[in-house]
């Protein structure tokens, strides 16, 4: 395939397009791949779990299953916000498991052309960059595309480390 053809391919709407679920957290808009989102539910009673990692808000009862719920605000260092009726729990699939993520509000499902997504490195710096798949430009708005699997596996690793450390401390 020649270079010219490749460009055409990237522009074709069916070729390089992604569907994302966009949601807001604080002032920013984030997006995750639609394939990883199972459902979006209103915030319900979240029961805290002792000794859980800090970003885990607690557990909920999802039709008889116990599902952990994460607060991305904590993960990203935003201030907490409680009892906001627009808040939702977005259930995402990570590995084989369902995990809830609290978001401020879910705005829409968007189609984004692959070529409107820029590498995160060009826009942001810092630790967060690892969780960011890219930055999509939709009109004037910037949407940060998150890699939830990455966030969670990273968080898990930290938990395991903490657990191991605790276990290693012998009184």
């Amino acid at each position: 395939m020649s270079i010219d053809e490749a460009r055409v391919v990237n522009r074709s709407p069916s070729g390089g397009e992604r569907q994302i679920v966009a949601f807001s957290l604080g002032q920013e808009t984030y997006g995750v791949d639609i394939a990883s989102v199972r459902e979006i539910i209103p915030v319900q009673k979240i029961v805290p779990v002792p000794r859980a990692p800090q970003f885990v808000e607690g557990i909920i009862n999802l039709r008889g299953r116990v599902v952990p719920v994460l607060d991305l605000r904590k993960q990203f260092g935003f201030e907490e916000r409680k009892d906001d009726p627009t808040q939702r729990i977005m259930l995402v699939e990570v590995g084989q498991e369902g995990i809830g993520v609290i978001v401020d509000s879910v705005s829409s499902v968007l189609r984004i052309a692959e070529d409107s997504i820029e590498e995160a490195a060009t826009v942001v710096v810092g630790d967060e960059i690892e969780y960011i798949e890219g930055i999509a430009k939709v009109g004037t708005e910037l949407i940060v595309l998150l890699d939830l699997t990455r966030i969670i596996s990273d968080a898990e690793k930290r938990t395991l480390r903490e657990a191991d450390l605790r276990a290693a401390v012998v009184q």
Partner: peptide, 19 residues
């Protein structure tokens, strides 16, 4: 007894959850 998922599976003194 229900499992709480991977993230919460190794907490000391926590055996799981129930409804």
């Amino acid at each position: 007894v229900k499992e709480m998922g991977h993230i919460l599976s190794r907490l000391k003194g926590i055996a799981g959850a129930t409804i």
